[in-house]
Structures are given as structure tokens and as C-alpha cells.
């Protein structure tokens, strides 16, 4: 459990980080909090030849409100979000952080690292899709914004180019009635199923709750129900709504977790996420 040899580079600025990534190409990995990457390197499942450390880049950590939007710097830790006062518009982000690993992990791991790692059950990935976040990315050609729904291509695979760096995540719209909940046998584990809901839906269908699921597909899976569920904002219909969501998603049997059980977890967790969102 010692990593293979690599060359360590400390970038002092975003520009320098991007330069290094451009020079080093696919053999380089960005390291921020290191909470996923270091473990994978120790098991030699990841063997980057170069690490570009951005932990010392100034200005990449912090939370700002810009108009109705929330901007979170890529180096902002889960814990910083957890303890930030984001009520009421973005309190869902703070509340969700309790599900991210354990406290020591949350004090090191970052939002940018989590999104770049692109684990389909990771809370940040699910939240980003749910809340239609824009991922601000710096590359050799300048800045571009990637919609969260376009970021995740597959398990641990994102639309980031090897020479691109996430610098900021923008949550464009308020979500006062949203929640994420999940289930794992142990607290702090990656979820078997995670369910996030925004009761206010999305701009295209503002009255139908929007659901994003983790653990049922390789990437966070948005689920939109039809007009039958318009106005499903009261507790009386959450069970029915959750059942409809669970019935709609395609789930396969997996080692140790049958499709039947996973579907049951989807139903349970969607209902509970709805209840939590309604009480938010």
C-alpha cells in the first residue's frame, strides 16, 4: 500500500496548474484534498506519473453569493460547506454534507475533487445534477462552463480534458425545498442508493419534483415524472410519487444487492428525501 513513484509539482496559480497539465498530458493527475486519489494510489489502482498539487493555489476556496446564485470555489472543503450559513436558499448543500464520508474526510476533501473524481454515488455529483450546477473549468484555451448533466460520462469518467482544472462550481438557482438522503450499512460509506429531490422541480417542469438518484446507474440519474405528478408537494402523495419513481428506473441485479432490494431502497429514500425537503 505504497504508491508507485511519481513526480510532485506544486502549482502556485491556476494558470501554472493548467500549464503543468498541458505539459504533462495524460500522465498527470490533479491532487487537492487527496481523499480518493491517495487511497487509489496506495493500492496502485491509480499510477499517475505526475501529481499537480493545487492545494496552495490562492483564491480557489470560498463560498460567494452572486445575485441569486451560489459560487463555491473548487478547493472549498465539504466541511466548510457543512458549517457555512446557506439558509434558506442553499441549505440543502450544508445538510447533505453530513453524508460525505466522516468528519476527517470532510475537512480535507473538496467539492472540485469530488466532481472531478466523478463517482456516481458521490453526494456532490448528485447535487450538481439536481441543482443544474455549472462547472467552471480552466484550460489552455481559457475558461468554459460545463453543465453538470454533461459532466459525467460514466463511472469515474468526466468530460474534463486532462489539461483542464475545475476552478468553481456555480449553483444558479435557489433550492429551498430540496434534500438528499441515502442508505449504507455503515455511516460514512458510499451509498447503496442515494436519492436527492427538489420539490420545486426544474425550470422546464416547475411543479413536478425532480429526483436524482445515485447508485442505480453509472452516473447520477435524473428522474422526471409526467404531468400526473404536477403539484406533488404535499406529504400525502410522496409515497405514491416515490413508488412511481422506483417503478420507472431500470435497475439490474448486482453482486450482493438484488434489483428488487435496490428498487425498494429507491422508493424508501425518495419518499424520505421528499419529506425532508418539505420540512426544510
Amino acid at each position: 500500500m505504497k504508491p508507485a513513484a511519481f513526480t510532485y509539482h506544486r502549482a502556485g496559480s491556476v494558470r501554472r496548474a493548467v500549464e503543468l497539465l498541458s505539459e504533462l498530458g495524460e500522465d498527470a493527475k490533479v491532487i487537492a484534498g487527496g481523499q480518493s486519489l491517495v487511497a487509489m494510489m496506495n493500492y496502485r489502482l491509480a499510477r499517475p506519473e505526475h501529481l499537480v498539487d493545487i492545494a496552495h493555489v490562492k483564491g480557489l476556496a470560498g463560498i460567494r453569493r452572486v445575485g441569486g446564485a451560489l459560487h463555491i470555489g473548487a478547493l472549498t472543503t465539504h466541511h466548510a460547506v457543512e458549517v457555512a450559513d446557506l439558509t434558506p436558499d442553499f441549505a440543502v448543500l450544508s445538510r447533505t454534507m453530513r453524508w460525505v464520508g466522516h468528519l476527517p474526510i470532510r475537512t480535507r476533501g473538496t467539492i472540485g475533487g469530488s466532481l472531478a473524481h466523478a463517482d456516481g454515488t458521490a453526494e456532490w455529483c448528485i447535487l450538481a445534477v439536481l441543482l443544474d450546477a455549472r462547472i467552471v473549468v480552466e484550460g489552455p484555451g481559457g475558461t468554459r462552463r460545463i453543465a453538470a448533466s454533461d459532466l459525467f460520462l460514466g463511472p469515474f469518467t468526466s468530460a474534463l480534458e486532462p489539461d483542464e482544472l475545475i476552478v468553481e462550481v456555480v449553483f444558479p438557482r435557489r433550492a429551498p425545498r430540496a434534500a438528499l438522503t441515502e442508505y449504507a450499512e455503515r455511516r460514512g460509506d458510499f451509498a447503496i442508493v442515494a436519492a436527492a429531490v427538489d420539490l420545486d422541480g426544474c425550470p422546464e417542469a416547475p411543479d413536478i419534483p425532480l429526483v436524482v438518484l445515485g447508485g442505480v446507474a453509472p452516473t447520477p440519474l435524473p428522474v422526471r415524472l409526467g404531468p400526473d405528478f404536477t403539484g406533488t408537494t404535499g406529504p400525502g402523495r410522496f409515497g405514491e410519487f416515490a413508488t412511481a419513481v422506483a417503478d420507472q428506473v431500470q435497475i439490474r441485479d448486482d453482486t450482493g444487492v438484488s434489483a428488487h432490494y435496490r428498487r425498494g431502497l429507491v422508493r424508501t429514500l425518495v419518499e424520505r428525501a421528499c419529506e425532508e425537503a418539505a420540512q426544510a
Binding site: E185, R186, R187, G188, D189, F190
Partner: peptide
């Protein structure tokens, strides 16, 4: 790893 070998923690 401890991802798969589920030793309970103080939370459990």
C-alpha cells in the same frame, strides 16, 4: 480494504 470489509465504527 475497509470499503468492502465493513468494520463498524463509533457511529454503529
Amino acid at each position: 480494504s475497509f470499503m468492502e470489509y465493513k468494520v463498524p465504527t463509533a457511529m454503529e
